[in-house]
């Protein structure tokens, strides 16, 4: 029906285990939102509270259904001189960052990700809007990718 955006590149996908992280986090937020809706309906006796609860339920189920596809849509590619990043199915986003623009690289680990041995890598430039965050990398890969990126940035060092 409609043309999707796509770039030909050697895409690396995130770990399949990352789906679990997304599932758990959307489940947790669904439960929290559902609890709030339940409080509004049952304890505060708001008559339309059940509508809220149903809405939360639908959103959570939809999120859980698309979670695997969303996780699979995240990808990155190391080109000769820049890092390519993509994510999203409905809302697609593609970013290209020259290696030389790197200011720092962050590696973070959430509780669920840590249990599964996953880490998130964030590529920070002087522009806050760059927002390149690659989630769900196996810990060893994340460290390796960080060292590789730092090395690439060093060899292509540019000013600000």
């Amino acid at each position: 029906m409609s043309r999707r955006l796509d770039v030909q590149a050697e895409w690396h996908r995130v770990s399949p285990k990352y789906v679990l992280v997304v599932l758990v986090s959307s489940l947790v937020s669904g439960v929290v939102a559902g609890a709030i809706a339940a409080v509004i309906w049952l304890i505060m006796q708001v008559s339309w509270g059940w509508l809220l609860l149903v809405a939360v339920g639908i959103v959570t189920v939809v999120t859980l259904i698309v979670a695997p596809r969303r996780a699979r849509s995240i990808g990155y590619a190391l080109r000769d001189d820049d890092l390519l990043f993509r994510r999203g199915i409905m809302f697609q986003r593609f970013v290209a960052v020259p290696y030389g623009r790197m200011q720092l690289i962050d590696i973070t680990r959430g509780p669920v990700g840590r249990a599964l041995g996953l880490a998130d890598l964030k590529f920070v430039t002087a522009a806050a809007s760059t927002a390149v965050a690659i989630p769900g990398l196996p810990e060893a890969d994340a460290g390796e990718l960080r060292d590789r990126l730092v090395e690439l940035a060093e060899s292509r060092r540019a000013g600000l």
């Binding site: 809302f91 986003r93 970013v95 290209a96 623009r101 760059t130």
Partner: peptide, 20 residues
């Protein structure tokens, strides 16, 4: 020479209009 990065994005509305 000063550009930090470049981005292209597309949501459902723009996709249906063949835009980005």
């Amino acid at each position: 020479a000063r550009l930090q990065s470049v981005e292209v994005r597309q949501g459902p509305l723009r996709r249906s209009l063949h835009l980005a």
